[in-house]
């Protein structure tokens, strides 16, 4: 298992290299000159040329790519053209904000989705089953931006129950330690802020978590239905086991194998949804970071931002593969 993990990690290197190259080339295909954007419309040719040189953008692209690549291996993600701060120093708060939101969304999706799927399968054709599956069907086809805006309009504005934007109360911001505000507020002994952070997480968490929740619920249901028909479930019942344990122990562990795949895939896709959710809810995450960088033609930030997101995606897939082995003893990685 350990050597398998190492080998899988090694195999990631060419993947990440390829991704770096593609992102690097794509960004240079975007029209617009960074020097011009930084200096504004009235900039002189001379000033622009000087800045282009200073930014290193005048050199041939292979040289630029090589420099960028060797930087990455030493942990240097480049310097932001806009803020002039090394990206590796400023990216973390954004990344943490996205991870926190995604984890909360995934937590909502998994806890509700898996349980709804289990209960639907257990009481197949009951009213719960029907309601849950109709809701799931609607959930799968729900556009994030529409759901997000409706949440804001109804829950935040009409009912005034929850805040519309941001991660915390602007007048009483959380003092960053790890940049995971759920943790930081507790580290600072500010339980009131902890509640406030949760209140900020609910709406974007639901907006982002609804699609994966619906997909997970449907997958869990069909997987459970199949497992519950199998011979070993009949064996478990013939032992005199309580139905609850037959479902939550003997069936679930088998049914989880395909569900884990879906959860992994959805977690990857979540990153895409997160960027959309962040713009709707003014969430200062990696999506916002990249989005702003794009409008500024901040090449290094776009490049490194996308690279970091892609690396996370690949890592999630690795974790999913390793999870299989933990659940299913028939899979042995050598």
């Amino acid at each position: 298992m350990f050597s398998y993990t190492i080998r899988r990690l090694t195999a990631l290197i060419p993947v990440l290299l390829g991704m770096t190259f593609i992102v690097f080339m794509m960004i240079r295909a975007i029209p617009g000159n960074p020097a011009q954007i930084i200096l504004g419309q009235q900039a002189t040719k001379k000033a622009m040329a000087a800045l282009t040189k200073e930014l290193g953008l005048d050199r041939p692209w292979p040289t630029q790519f090589w420099e960028y690549l060797s930087g990455i291996f030493t942990g240097d993600l480049g310097v932001s053209l806009k803020s002039r701060v090394p990206i590796s120093e400023e990216i973390w708060p954004y990344l943490a904000a996205t991870i926190e939101l995604s984890l909360v969304a995934m937590l909502i999706a998994i806890v509700i989705g898996v349980n709804a799927g289990i209960i639907s399968a257990w009481f197949q054709n009951s009213w719960f089953d029907y309601v849950a599956m109709v809701v799931a069907l609607i959930g799968v086809s729900m556009p994030i931006f529409w759901l997000g805006l409706m949440e804001q309009y109804i829950v935040a504005i009409q009912w005034d129950l929850l805040p519309t934007t941001g991660r915390d109360n602007i007048r009483d911001p959380v003092e960053a330690v790890t940049n995971f505000y759920l943790i930081d507020s507790l580290l600072n002994n500010r339980f009131d802020q902890f509640i406030e952070v949760i209140r900020h997480l609910i709406l974007p968490g639901i907006a982002l978590g609804t699609i994966p929740m619906a997909i997970i619920a449907r997958m869990t249901r069909s997987s459970m239905l199949e497992v519950m028909r199998s011979d070993y479930i009949r064996t478990a019942r013939a032992k005199g086991m309580k139905m609850f344990w037959v479902v939550y122990k003997h069936s679930l562990k088998n049914a989880l194998i395909p569900v884990v795949t879906v959860i992994g895939l959805q977690t990857g896709l979540l990153l895409g949804g997160a960027i959309l959710t962040e713009t709707i809810f003014g969430w200062p995450g990696i999506g916002t970071y990249i989005y702003e960088a794009i409008s500024y033609r901040d090449y290094p930030v776009i490049q490194s931002g996308i690279l970091v997101v892609a690396a996370i995606f690949v890592l999630i897939n690795l974790v999913v593969d390793l999870l299989y082995a933990a659940i299913d003893p028939r899979i042995k990685y050598k």
């Binding site: 011979d231 009949r234 064996t235 013939a238 032992k239 005199g240 003997h250 028939r330």
Partner: peptide, 26 residues
């Protein structure tokens, strides 16, 4: 009541030994 009887007073074995044991438990 049946749950107390199953496996304790009346036990059962099935035709398909290949699939009658749960694959994910020892």
């Amino acid at each position: 009541r049946m749950r107390k009887i199953r496996g304790n007073d009346i036990a059962m074995i099935f035709q398909e030994p290949m699939t009658s044991l749960n694959p994910v438990f020892t």
